[in-house]
Design a binder for these strands. Structure first.
Lengths: 191, 191
DNA sequence: TACGTGGCCGGACAAATGTCCTTTATGGTA
DNA sequence: TACCATAAAGGACATTTGTCCGGCCACGTA
C-alpha cells in the first residue's frame, strides 16, 4: 500500500551526503500541498525523503483513483521524464513531506554515467510494474471484502493513517461501499 | 490493447541482422503453445518478432486475468530479470509467433554496454507503467459498456482476432456480462 | 453559545454484474 | 454420417455495488 524503496533511498542519501551530486535539492511540503498537478508540465524527478504522499488521478467521471501511496525512497515524475509529457497524475502530501528533486537533464546524465544508479532505477520501475500488475488483477477478481482484508493484512495501521475516502479511492470503490463492508466484517467477528 | 514497441523492434532487428549480437536466438510457437508458465523459473528475456501472445495470470478464484496482449517489439520476462523470481504470469501464443530470446546474463551485459539499448529498455518499462496505470483507473471507474466502447475504438478488429472469453478476461468481467453488454449496445444502435 | 463545515455512518432503493444452466452453432474426427 | 468438444448466446435469479439521502459528531469561529 505505501510503497518504499530502501535501496534507492540509501543510495541517494549517500550521493547527497557525499556532496558528489549537487544536482539534488531538498524541498518541504505541508499536508494537502500538491507537488505535482495532473496536466501540468513536469521538469524534474522526485525522490521521497520522508513522509507520505498520495498519487492519484481524477477520472472523467469525477472520482479520484489513487495509484499508489509513496513513502521513503520511492520516486515519481519518472514517467513524464522520457516523453516530455504532462503529468498524468497529481501528487499530494498527506503529512509533512520532504523530497529530493533533480532536474530532468541532471537525472538523465546521472542515468548515463552512474551504472549503479541506472540499475537501481530500472529495478524501481520493474518493482512498480510488478506491483501494479498484481494489484490490478486482484482488484478485478475479488469482492470488496477480500480486497479490504488483504489491505489490512499488509498494512494493519491502515485506518489510523489514511482517511476513509482515500482508502475507498485506492480500492476503486465508493465510501458507502467501504463502510458497508467494514460493518459486515465486524459483525462476522462479533455476531 | 495489443501492445507493440516499434523503436525497440527495429533496434533489435538491426542488432540481429548486423550479427553484432550473437546472443539472440529465434524461436517459433504455434497457437496455444506456452512460452512462459506462471510459477516456473525464467532464464531469458523475450522480444516479440511477429504474431500475438496473451500475458495472463490465474487468480486464486480460478479466473484468468489478462495483463496485456503483446505484438511486434514488445518484451516480456523482464520483470523476472532482476530478482531471479518465478514467472508471475503465463505467456501463450494466440497465432503463429516468433520471438527473439536472450539469456539473462547476455541481456544484463547488453544493458550495461549499450547506452541506446539501455535507454530503449527504460522507455519500454515506462510505457508499460503508464499503460497499466491508465488502464487500471479506467477499469475501476467505468461500467462495462464504457470499457467495451473504448476498447473497440482503440482496436476495431477486436472481435475478429480475440476470442470472447479472452476479451472478457482482459476486461476483468465474466463472459455473460460481455455478451449482455454487446447485445445492449447493438440494440441502442438499432432500436 | 450558535452556527457552519467536513468526516463518518448507514437506510432505502436502483443499477451493474455474477452464477447457474440451457440452447444453438461450428469444426474436427471416428 | 454421427458424435463430441468448444465457442457463443441468452434466460432467470442472486449478489454486489452505486446513488441519493439524512443524521450524528467533532471542531473551529463569529
Amino acid at each position: 500500500m505505501i510503497r518504499t524503496n530502501k535501496e534507492l533511498f540509501s543510495y541517494i542519501t549517500n550521493l547527497v551526503l557525499s556532496g558528489s551530486a549537487g544536482s539534488f535539492s531538498e524541498h518541504h511540503y505541508a499536508p494537502l500541498q500538491r507537488i505535482l498537478v495532473e496536466g501540468k508540465n513536469v521538469f524534474s524527478v522526485y525522490i521521497m525523503k520522508s513522509g507520505i504522499v498520495k498519487c492519484y488521478l481524477t477520472t472523467d467521471t469525477g472520482s479520484n483513483f489513487i495509484q499508489e501511496f509513496f513513502g521513503e525512497g520511492e520516486l515519481f515524475g519518472e514517467i513524464e521524464l522520457m516523453d516530455d509529457s504532462y503529468s498524468y497524475c497529481t501528487i499530494e502530501a498527506i503529512d509533512d513531506v520532504t523530497v529530493y528533486k533533480i532536474q530532468k537533464s541532471d537525472f538523465l546524465r546521472l542515468l548515463d554515467h552512474d551504472k549503479k544508479f541506472n540499475r537501481l532505477f530500472i529495478e524501481a520501475l520493474i518493482s512498480k510494474l510488478k506491483y501494479k500488475a498484481t494489484r490490478h488483477s486482484y482488484n478485478q477478481s475479488h469482492i470488496i471484502e477480500d480486497k479490504l482484508r488483504r489491505l489490512k493484512m499488509k498494512f494493519p495501521e491502515l485506518e489510523e493513517v489514511i482517511s476513509k475516502q482515500d482508502i475507498a479511492d485506492y480500492l476503486g470503490i465508493t465510501l458507502r461501499a467501504l463502510n458497508r463492508t467494514i460493518k459486515t466484517m465486524s459483525q462476522e467477528i462479533n455476531p
